[in-house]
Amino acid sequence: MDPKSAGTEKPLPLMEGTTAAFYGHCRNRELRFQRCTGCGRWRHVPRLCCSHCGSWDWEWARSSGRGKVFTWTVVARPMHPAFAGDAPYAPAIIELEEGVRMVSWVVDCPPEELATGMPVAVIFEDVTDEVTLPRFRRA
């Protein structure tokens, strides 16, 4: 890697296995999480089997895409150079209606307007030809 260009690209998920499946659904404008078909529990991040009931059977169940802001941070000094132009930006934990939580951004919302419990809904952003990230907007 050319040291001068190192880090100018934003990090992307490694598109294999359940990660590829998760982001593949995002590419189709669907937010889907694993749901155990043994006990019905939703889960994220993807797992091989259910930590609650032990079942290896699961489906990619579609989320309503609605949730609320659980908490967030405001990154003033990015630790990854590719995000330098975004600072200050606010990675947030979103809690979906189905109970799972995930990391994302609330777009169109300045960091100082974020609030715990703020209702949000998913949108999708194609960041490369292959990768679509789920983001959120105030609902």
């Binding site: 890697m1 190192a6 880090g7 934003k10 990090p11 992307l12 998920p13 490694l14 990660t19 994220h44 991040v45 941070t73 990154v75 990015p78 630790m79 990854h80 150079p81 590719a82 995000f83 975004d86 930006y89 990675p91 995930m102 990391v103 994302s104 951004w105 960041v127 990768v131 990230l133």
Partner: peptide
Amino acid sequence: IVVQDPSAMSGGANARDFYFPFGLTAPVQ
């Protein structure tokens, strides 16, 4: 390290795939 070897950070592949793309790349965050 977060640029060269993301999965060496805490959380490994999960962090690389589900935290890093959203700019959540380091312990301080």
